[in-house]
């Protein structure tokens, strides 16, 4: 997918219309605003985070260079390990939403006239404020009078304190994460489905293949590039989960917060609540490394399952 990015601009250098100094100045003028902004607000902040991760940065006063102290402290900090564990667990569960999205996307594709209505309904969480979503689900998950426990009681299942009990919070968040992400995944997968030539289905129907068989033999294999793309996006977004935990735990002083922090939440707390920016910066750098490893791993694994026809 992103390999297109690496391709240099394809312009035959032979007949460069007005390939003189003037046109270079035009190009520079076009690119200057974006480049100045990129350097001031992205490249420099990135480098300063990298530098700070090797410094002790007090809330007030000058920073001092401390070598890899932040990183060694981080490695022996149980809270950091726990936060990484929580983020990893959350990510793995949210990934289960992808097979669900593939099945639903295939069904919507077949739904004929109702397609738009389904797409709109599934998309509603995407255009709802995540903060509002966190509030609504916190209410649904309430252990005493929440809707979920009420529905479970119909089936004789004992209710739980889904967000107040740290044993369940990450799972509870992940369910919301799947629910929130479904709409976008369906649109991307839907576009992928429409790119599959109809003739392939017609040929297999002539061979007597049923719908289920077609789904596994044609739809899923030909959709793997889109599934791969959705997986990459999902993992990156899930590793950066912050809003739900802020809304469902922090803003209401929930005691489960201590054991349910995600990595980005911990970063926020260190860097912007306790203003220990050196340590916060080190956490952010480790997050970057984790995302790079996760993405590289997926690109490596894709060779065994993604089908580029």
């Amino acid at each position: 997918m992103t390999n297109v990015a690496a391709k240099p601009a394809r312009r035959p250098s032979g007949r460069r219309a007005g390939g003189n100094q003037t046109s270079v100045w035009w190009a520079v003028a076009f690119i200057a605003p974006a480049t100045i902004g990129l350097v001031a607000l992205y490249v420099w902040p990135f480098l300063s985070t990298l530098i700070k991760s090797f410094q002790d940065v007090p809330a007030f006063g000058p920073a001092t260079f401390v070598g890899v102290d932040n990183y060694t402290a981080l490695l022996s900090d149980g809270e950091v390990w726990e936060a990484f564990g929580n983020s990893a667990l959350y990510t793995v569960i949210v990934l289960l939403g992808i097979p669900l999205a593939v099945v639903l996307a295939a069904l919507i594709e077949q739904a004929g006239r109702g397609r738009t209505i389904y797409r709109v309904l599934f998309f509603l969480p995407v255009v709802t404020l995540p903060v509002a979503i966190g509030m609504v689900w916190r209410f649904i998950y309430n252990g005493d009078f929440g809707l979920l426990n009420y529905v479970l009681s119909w089936f004789g299942i004992d209710g739980q304190y889904w967000v107040a009990d740290a044993r369940f919070t990450i799972y509870a968040f992940a369910v919301v994460g799947i629910w929130m992400g479904l709409g976008i995944n369906l649109i991307i997968l839907g576009a992928g489905l429409q790119a599959i030539p109809k003739a392939v289905y017609e040929a297999s129907a002539l061979d007597g293949a049923g719908r289920i068989r077609q789904f596994f033999r044609i739809t899923v294999p030909l959709l793997t590039p889109s599934i791969f793309f959705v997986t990459i996006l999902t993992v990156i977004a899930a590793l950066q989960m912050f809003d739900l935990i802020f809304i469902m735990l922090r803003s209401v002083n929930n005691t489960a917060l201590g054991d349910s922090k995600t990595i980005v939440y911990l970063f926020y707390e260190k860097a912007f609540v306790q203003f220990d920016q050196g340590y916060g910066a080190a956490i952010a750098i480790v997050l970057l490394i984790a995302i790079m490893i996760a993405t590289a791993l997926q690109f490596r694994l894709q060779k065994s399952w993604v089908f580029y026809g």
Binding site: L41, Y42, W44, P45, F46, L47, S48, T49, K52, I236, L239, Q240, V264, F267, A271, F272, Q277, G280, A281, A284, I285, L287, L288, I291
Partner: peptide, 9 residues
């Protein structure tokens, strides 16, 4: 690069 890396700067 994930957006959190830019926040401090």
């Amino acid at each position: 690069v994930p957006s959190q890396l830019f926040l401090i700067g």
